[in-house]
Design a protein around this nucleic acid. Structure first.
Length: 645
RNA sequence: GCCGGGUUGGCCGAGUGGCUAGGCACCUGAUUUGUAAUCAGGCUCACAGGGGUUCGAGUCCCUUACCCGGCACCA
């Protein structure tokens, strides 16, 4: 006779077997209809699961967040059943709920295409209409393996074989269809509802390993009701409008072309944006005690051999040779060896540490063709890189300083929030396990000191050390690593960096590789999407357009522009013989933050009429007032501009 | 790199194997105009490159390049 504690704290006792259904019925008929699953002592379970002992039970209804995840998971099962009914011989593998939806990976000789969607969706709706109940069964391990093997489901059999010996093997039936699944599920296929849509197909390697077979993945999205689905689809359309590739073209910021795959052609406005970001970073790094350096682009192979890049990173390096010389060079894919070469010049003392060498380093990497993405993932990019040479004891303090600096800079660019991932030792690495133990430990302790909360990203570290990744999200919801902090005990050893310690002995410095924006290209891509091209005033590549109403005001318009330019503003002039309405529209579409309108009145009174992007009111000021006001607004946040206040 | 889908003028975008839409932009002329598109006329080597099938290919097939979506890889 279990005692069930409900969320409001009340306790109910039952005679005999208790399930979520029993509990729901005991509370109210309405809840009995609405309950889809339950949380039992914190664990999400089937509504019909038996509750054997005293427990705290929360019933899950459609409006709970957990329900949405279950709807998506169930939708994946329904899709898998539909696919197997329509395409016999297709094997099922795995099919989880993901953010905004679900997917299922299938093994089939002929991959699926979007043309298959209507038939699959129609069959899914039939299965939902059948409302077959989900029935959980627990199987003996060997019997389960035999069962799936005999059905030709070798992937499922393999999954079971790899489960731990003591794992519970659970299968879920829905009508005639059955799948290996941990569960839990909703009550029946009917609970999935109709608010789902298949969205895309993709190849995906079995178990995420490129050496394995390629499976055919179908993605779908699923929601509680049609309204939520519609609003999600609408959000996707909106996100498409923010795509930096589209805005880059529309605002004439940059372009890409076949002859230079993965390299950006920056147009004047785009380059202005780039320079604004770079100048801002330079000021921040100067203020934070960094010394800027510049190291060679083309470096002899021998240095890359010593650094370990030739062995570990060669597939990503552009190799260069010349006719008359029997040498092999490589375009630098990273700036670190160059920084070490500067550190090694002369004798360094412990008094020089920490030595923070910054470099706006242009790197080239031969990225896999399928990885390229607009300006976010390119083959030529500029890193706001720096290498901090310090002692092991200084690592924690340097980490704290770095994280503070990064957070402040992200805030200035409009990103108060970001994620942090901790990536530890990869399979392909340089340095002994003992060194990695020390490096990982040092970084973990530094995070604790800095108060950084992170998620673990196992096996994703750089080949020379563990790293923190600072991640921002683009308009479509994709995560991008921007900032990074990497602890390196390996390169100083390989490239023989050393300093004289207090006791006169020679020591190896620790090297912190760090970047804040990461690559200017990627970061600006995200900034473009963040603002959808409507940049804050201090960043806008074209801040003001002076637009005339009559040609009599042309000379005055030029004078206004000159006054504003003298204040350091980016100013355009529109003397074309169009109506002011057309000019306002043209420059508004180009997201120019301020249009300064001048007609006869303004020319006579030496005033300008300022019109803000998106606003309707105009503000008539004297030329001097307008210039002072706009100049003040254009001050970057780090120089006390309004953006930070 | 792998799987799938694409590639039609500067941009967007129609086009059952049979004379290649349309819109925006651009150019010319008229209009001197007061806050998100003035009117009229005109122009452009547009079917990604190569090969094939066919009396005939933007349309079907093969191939290369690039792009897009994922996967893998990564700032």
């Amino acid at each position: 006779m279990p005692a069930i504690t409900l969320p409001d704290g009340s306790v109910r006792r039952f005679d005999g077997a208790v399930t979520g259904t029993t509990v729901a019925e005991a509370i109210s008929p309405g809840l009995a209809r609405a309950a889809l699953a339950m949380r039992c002592d914190g664990e999400l379970r089937d509504l019909v699961a038996r509750i054997a002992t005293d427990a705290t039970v929360t019933l899950i209804t459609r409006k709970d967040p957990e329900a949405l995840e279950l709807i998506r998971h169930d939708a994946a099962h329904v899709m898998a059943q539909a696919v197997q009914e329509l395409f016999p011989g297709t094997q099922v593998t795995i099919g989880p709920a993901i953010e905004n939806g679900f997917y299922y990976d299938f093994a089939r000789n002929e991959p699926f295409t979007p043309e298959d969607f209507p038939a699959i969706e129609a069959r899914m709706r039939e299965i939902v209409a059948r409302d077959d109940k989900f029935v959980r069964e627990e199987w003996d391990r060997d019997e389960a393996i035999a069962f799936f093997q005999q059905r030709g489901e070798k992937y499922k059999a393999e999954l079971i074989e790899d489960l731990p010996e003591d794992a519970v093997i659970s299968l879920y039936r829905q009508g005639s269809w059955v799948d290996l699944c941990r569960g839990p599920h909703l009550r029946g296929t009917g609970d999935v509802g109709g608010a789902f849509k298949l969205t895309k197909v993709a190849g995906a390697y079995w178990r995420g390993d490129h050496r394995n077979a390629m499976l055919s993945r179908i993605y779908g999205t699923a929601w509680r009701d049609q309204k939520e689905l519609d609003s999600y689809l609408h959000m996707l359309e909106e996100a498409e409008r923010r795509d930096h590739r589209r805005i880059g073209r529309e605002l004439d910021l940059f372009h890409l072309q076949e002859e230079a795959v993965g390299s950006v052609f920056w147009h004047p406005k785009g380059w202005r944006l780039y320079r604004t970001a770079e100048a801002y970073m330079r000021r921040r790094l100067d203020a934070a005690g960094y010394l800027e350096v510049k190291t060679p682009q083309l470096v002899d192979r021998s240095l890359w051999e010593r650094s370990g890049h030739w062995e570990k990173f060669r597939d990503y390096m552009f190799i260069a040779q010349v006719e008359d010389e029997d040498r092999t060079y490589a375009l630098k894919p990273m700036n670190c060896p160059g920084a070490v070469m500067i550190f090694r010049q002369g004798v360094r003392s412990y008094r020089d540490l920490p030595l923070r060498l910054a470099e706006f380093g242009a790197c080239h990497r031969y990225e896999p063709s399928g990885a390229l993405h607009g300006i976010m993932r390119v083959r030529a990019f500029l890193q706001d890189d720096a290498h901090i040479f310090c002692t092991e004891e200084q690592v924690a303090d340097e980490t704290v300083r770095f994280v503070d600096l990064l957070a402040s800079i992200y805030r200035d660019f409009g990103f108060p929030e970001f994620k942090v991932k901790f990536s530890d030792r990869p399979a392909m690495r340089a340095g002994s396990d003992a060194v990695w133990d020390r490096a990982e430990q040092a970084l973990k302790e530094a995070c604790a000191t800095a108060g950084v909360e992170y998620t673990l990203n196992p096996g994703e570290g750089a080949f020379y050390g563990p790293k923190l990744e600072f991640v921002l999200r683009d308009a479509i919801g994709r995560d991008w690593q921007c900032g990074t902090l990497q602890v390196d005990f390996v390169l100083p050893e390989r490239l023989d960096a050393e300093y004289v310690a207090e006791d006169g002995g020679r020591r190896r410095p620790v090297m912190l590789h760090r970047a804040i924006l990461g690559s200017l290209e990627r970061f600006l891509g995200i900034v473009i999407e963040q603002y959808a091209g409507r940049f804050p005033f201090w960043m806008a590549p074209l801040q003001v357009v002076v637009a005339t109403i009559v040609s009599d005001a042309d000379a005055y318009a030029e004078e206004v522009a000159a006054v504003l330019r003298a204040k350091g503003l980016q100013v355009g002039v529109d003397l074309s013989r169009q109506k002011i309405n057309a000019k306002v529209r043209d420059h508004s579409v180009q997201h120019v933050p301020v249009i300064a309108v001048v007609g006869r009145r303004e020319a006579e009174n030496r005033t300008v009429a300022l019109r803000r992007l998106g606003g309707e009111a105009q503000e008539v000021l004297s030329l001097e007032e307008a210039a002072a006001l706009l100049a003040a607004e254009a001050v970057p946040p780090d120089l006390g501009g309004p953006a930070r206040a």
